[in-house]
Amino acid sequence: MEAPNLPSENLAGAIFHGTASDGSPVEVAVCDAEPSPQDPSMHWYRIEIWDKQKESWENPCIATQRAPNPKAVAVQGLWNEQGSRHEEPGKFTFACENGAIAKCIHWGYKPWATKDGQPLTEVHQACTRMARADYCGDGRSHTRKDNVIDMYDTLGIQARTTQTSASWAPEKASFEAAWTPEGASCLARTRDGQEAQTILKECPKRFEAGAKDLGEGDRCSVRLKGTRAEKTLLRNHAYGQTPRGTITVNMKHGQ
């Protein structure tokens, strides 16, 4: 959800008139706020929206076992239904903690921060594509509930996990894809168990069949067409096919 006037501190008690991701108008009430335990400068907000049909206020964030009372974080920038981000002066997004935008912040890719002088805005955007397995960069997800992934980057924020633990077994995983803010730059397979070549049919203008060796054992079978140069910011490994009949969500190992 979006509303004007990006907050810099506690907004408890405020009511905003904004726009939902589908373009419909929405009224958002900030009921409570608390600083993040990991980053006291960042606040988590308990928000509610007015449901005209039910004539009641309701939390728009979907509850999960890990977050039974989910909160939201205020992030500068707007995201459309295709998952693309753009800036609009005076506006921001309330991102639910169990969604891709907030998860990528939790994983260390804060879009307002820098790492060794490099802004993390594009890295965060690439992470949102990866979290949803949005290969084509059009908002279509190819992940399911409890699909565990291992991500890594060249900035030293997340490193590839090589040791077996209760939450991750690297010997059971394989390279999935490399990521840019616009979607995957190449992939070896899909997270939901489809062949990588199925993505060629979904976005034929973006990808073509063809091997690409990224080094460190990461090798793609589908890549960007022609000589298009899009900087790869993230890569990930994932387990094999998961049972069908589950819903779309994604988690980093250990989270």
Rank of each mutant, 00 (worst) to 15 (best):
M1Q: 02
A3L: 04
P4G: 00
P4V: 08
P4D: 05
N5K: 05
L6H: 08
P7F: 14
P7L: 08
S8G: 14
N10Q: 07
G13N: 04
I15C: 03
H17V: 09
G18I: 09
T19E: 08
T19L: 05
T19W: 05
G23W: 15
P25S: 11
E27L: 13
V28D: 02
A29K: 15
V30W: 09
A33P: 00
P35C: 05
Q38V: 14
H43I: 06
Y45I: 01
I47M: 03
I49D: 00
D51H: 06
K52G: 01
Q53R: 11
K54W: 11
E55V: 11
E55D: 13
E55K: 13
W57C: 00
E58R: 11
N59G: 01
Q65L: 13
A67S: 10
P70F: 08
P70V: 06
P70Q: 06
V73L: 04
A74H: 07
V75H: 04
L78F: 09
N80A: 06
Q82N: 08
E87A: 13
E88G: 00
P89V: 11
F94W: 15
F94M: 07
A100L: 01
I101A: 12
A102S: 13
A102G: 07
K103H: 14
Y109A: 01
Y109W: 14
K110P: 00
P111L: 09
P111N: 04
T114F: 10
G117T: 07
G117W: 12
P119C: 08
L120H: 03
E122F: 12
C127I: 05
T128H: 05
M130T: 01
A131G: 01
Y135H: 00
Y135F: 15
G137F: 11
D138V: 12
H142V: 04
H142N: 10
H142W: 15
D146W: 14
D146E: 12
V148Y: 03
D150E: 10
D153E: 02
D153G: 01
L155Q: 07
L155R: 07
G156M: 06
Q158F: 09
Q158I: 10
A159R: 11
A159Y: 14
A159M: 10
T164K: 12
A169L: 09
A169R: 08
A169H: 12
E171F: 11
E171A: 11
E171Q: 11
S174Y: 07
A177W: 01
A177H: 01
A178N: 02
A178M: 06
G183D: 04
A184P: 02
A184R: 00
C186G: 05
D192N: 13
G193T: 12
G193M: 07
E195R: 10
E195C: 03
A196F: 08
Q197W: 10
I199V: 15
I199L: 02
E202Q: 12
E202F: 10
K205D: 15
K205W: 11
E208K: 06
A209S: 13
G210Q: 03
K212Y: 15
D213M: 09
G217T: 02
V222Y: 02
L224C: 02
L224E: 02
T227D: 15
A229V: 09
E230Q: 12
E230V: 11
L233W: 08
L234K: 03
R235D: 06
N236T: 10
A238D: 14
P243A: 05
P243L: 02
R244I: 12
R244F: 14
I247W: 14
I247Q: 01
T248E: 13
V249E: 10
K252N: 10
K252F: 15
K252Y: 15
H253S: 01
G254V: 08
Q255D: 15
